[in-house]
Nucleic acid binder design. Sequence first.
DNA 1: ATCAGATAATAACAAGTAGATAATAAATGG
DNA 2: CCATTTATTATCTACTTGTTATTATCTGAT
Lengths: 278, 278
Amino acid sequence: MHLHDLDGLTEQAYLTQYNPGDYARPSVASDIVIFTVADLPEPNRRKLTGKELCVLLIRRGGHPYLNCWALPGGFVRPAETVGAAAYRELLEETGVNSGHLEQLYTFSTPGRDPRTWVMSCAHMALVDGKSILPKAGDDASDASWFRLTFGASGNGRYRLTLTHGDISLSALVTQAPDADCEGMKIVENQGLAFDHAKIIACAVQRLRNKLDYTDLALNLMPEQFTLTELQQVYETILDKSLLKAAFRRKVAHLVRETGEYTENTGHRPSQRFRRRED
Amino acid sequence: MHLHDLDGLTEQAYLTQYNPGDYARPSVASDIVIFTVADLPEPNRRKLTGKELCVLLIRRGGHPYLNCWALPGGFVRPAETVGAAAYRELLEETGVNSGHLEQLYTFSTPGRDPRTWVMSCAHMALVDGKSILPKAGDDASDASWFRLTFGASGNGRYRLTLTHGDISLSALVTQAPDADCEGMKIVENQGLAFDHAKIIACAVQRLRNKLDYTDLALNLMPEQFTLTELQQVYETILDKSLLKAAFRRKVAHLVRETGEYTENTGHRPSQRFRRRED
DNA sequence: ATCAGATAATAACAAGTAGATAATAAATGG
DNA sequence: CCATTTATTATCTACTTGTTATTATCTGAT
């Protein structure tokens, strides 16, 4: 193998003499896309079921992106992993310590933070809406749940919208080529800080893809739930209706019967299920 | 939303007054698992087809992990993305500028580099073996292609072996829980630097999974290839034999007929195919 | 009580996909 | 011209998924 020059050092010297601390280092933030599927009260409903896919955003009180909305996040500390930093943020913002947390992608386009060199290690979390609903309407705070829609908008573009009360954020992004989340481009952006539109779009795509072949959706459910409720969660995330019989067959191996049933519903009771552990 | 103390700053202050440059920053490296499927010459063969899944490793000439083998990689520079840094490494080590490159996972366990705080943004690359075979046997260099095997080893453990001539590296790792690559543990490790056994194991798993539902394998092929050759590549990576008829049905929509055929093979000629673009 | 209305749950059938084996095709070298 | 070898397609079966129809069980009105 040939040796190549690398900033004046040979490859060999680069490997052996390089002291990591001597060179420029980026700040590394852990940002987190927290999803929940919430049953919104009447005035906020957009659909029949009342279930909406929601994302938690925080309003920025300082520059840059003053008054824009941003994903919860913070800088990673020396003695923790990026995952631990994300978990810390999740706990701080929602109080939930259950659910699902996974690393998504590390965004590092130069200039993504106008202040300085900052990479964002993006995460995705799924939490049960019930456990945090009280905070959803708390307008005095700077953190709010935004209803999310994301879908094709012609020309290979995708429209992301986030709404909370009168506040409506919107972004138009291109399709990410292959597995390259960074390759997605923000064509238009209203109200979202940094490249967070891109991060949220990637997260939604990941979530939708994974619904098909994982039990990810169960992290959005309470301990017990009916199959109809579970199906509504799938339909809300995928933004399309599913056939009942096929859906039941598909999720059958993910859940366990409890023998308990709903009551006083005005129609045939529905059995409650819980996640199957193995 | 409640405000929480965070190193003495409130959440609000953290967001607005925090200057990223004021706090500890990690070094960020871009490491890359470069895969190829090579036709090894006779003496190195382990199987009938002669095809082997190979990974490029570089021998470390300095501390730490002196004389251990490591993934190609280098520190990310301020004006580039982690992907660009990976691409730069790929080009330096293999000279290839085609193929496939994708981000895998960012590893950040404290102490993973004994010198200082270093995160590794791991990538996976797939390149056509033909274009770089000349370098494979070049023992004078410090970069070599290692044959890879990875499989279950009882107790939920997985054995990773890497061999090149007389050199044999080996590691035993646990199954990664869910999508948490970092959650994998290295139980035993001979000859691999840092946590690179973990990174390679994650990469193999990702590669095997993706073979099923993507056209990733086509990046390991030359411009034109027969379906038998393609099947051998799949079998080599998955380490199991596939049924011919089913395989052809499965990949039919990924490839395009060329109308050209192999010649002088001693048997019925085989049609050459190429990747279908859309 | 009985029935209408609603939703749950499952049965039944069609259509498609994948596993497996067998048959046929096309070259080379005696 | 045949034996050998591999390519390619056909065929059959088993399983999975899409779709529609049927049956079950509750509440509340008559």
